[in-house]
Design a protein around this nucleic acid. Structure first.
Lengths: 199, 199
DNA sequence: CAAGATTTGTACCGGTTAGTACAAAACTGT
DNA sequence: ACAGTTTTGTACTAACCGGTACAAATCTTG
């Protein structure tokens, strides 16, 4: 781990770690955790195996770092969406940006947190992904409670149920995209959802 | 392939092919296509490898037969649900039975069509699953069109969008279940969905 | 120019994968 | 009883998996 930039000793690395990680994200995104072999990964990253291990650790660690990177990059819109003014605006922005992300040309179809592995032999990875998906439910529930206290969501609304409902659609959109649904089709799904939204 | 029951010649097989296939369904359901190794499968099926190959073909064929079996068995409720009298009843029954199926104790959490593989190195399997998931959208769209002609769904409703919407929730429920959501939580999601359903 | 530190490329390791060859076993028809 | 047919169990293959040993290459420090 880079010694605080004091002075880098030894042979300097010849690749951009951030770019390499982005490439790894793409591979995991497309092939999932188990489907992505180290050959796939290192080829896409443009580095050889020992360089990968030195820079990122083993495959699991690389995957976790890819998840972090994904959350900041391609899925960075989630934090933005949660900051919208009303619960309705939060949901609409979250869903529309998700549609744009999962049905985008140039990117693998679907969400990495779903594509990565919904079931696998590696229960550690499976649990990690489940936990990260559950985080979305927690964020939504908190945001909806705030919305209640701010008056833009009915007081009788079941915030936990609504949060789970939105997360269900969110992850459902990912599956639809990986089934080949187009962006326009999924935008209609968002339209249907919003028409029914309380408030 | 069994010669029409004329007279079975040669050594008779010592296992029940249907039971063995059911066991394979369970393994694929729990571990996904790639995660399920032939050792896992044959062990659960109670047979050895050559017997499996002779009876079911290679791993892909076994998986396809497991999908067929799944559609008739654990997911057999889908056909029933589509025969309900109104679109609303169809959706409610479909979603509630899905919740019961994906969050059931004793069965792997989630739906085989999602758990099986949403992304994998084997694009053939991935496409097969995507196609089977898409079938659900087709069935729903047809059913909703019928509902329109029968008057229990508004004529201005976008049947394609509604079908995609319900399929989105359906597959989303599977992801939620594999993230650890309880049956009660998911039943609340269905409640939220139905409250917003037109008609 | 050395000495120490770090990265890079090659080549390998043991373990696991899907798939199969082959012979023994268990049946039916003659 | 014998020939023909099919299943069963063992043992194997070739390819691939994640991970690593090792030496050459490239840097900073003294």
């Amino acid at each position: 781990m880079a010694r605080a930039s004091s002075t880098a000793r030894g042979r300097p690395r010849e690749f951009d770690a951030a770019k390499a990680l982005d490439a790894a994200v793409q591979v995991f995104w497309q092939k999932g955790y188990e489907g992505a072999s180290l050959d796939d990964l290192t080829r896409a990253m443009g580095i050889n195996r020992p360089s990968m291990y030195a820079a990122f650790g083993d495959k699991q660690e690389l995957f976790r770092k890819a998840l972090d990177r994904y959350a900041e990059g391609p899925a960075g819109y989630v934090r933005e969406a949660l900051q919208e003014k009303t619960a309705r605006a939060v949901v609409e922005k979250l869903l529309l940006r998700t549609v744009a992300a999962v049905a985008c040309r140039g990117n693998p179809h679907g969400c990495l947190l779903v594509q990565g592995a919904v079931s696998t032999g590696d229960s550690s990875i499976c649990g990690e992904l489940a936990a990260r998906r559950e985080l979305m439910v927690t964020w939504l529930r908190r945001r909806f409670k705030r919305a209640q206290s701010e008056g833009d969501l009915p007081r009788h609304a079941d915030t936990a149920a609504l949060a789970r409902y939105v997360a269900t659609i969110l992850h459902g959109l990912s599956v639809q995209a990986s089934s080949g649904a187009s962006r326009k089709e999924l935008e209609k799904v968002v339209k249907v959802t919003m028409k029914a939204w309380p408030g």
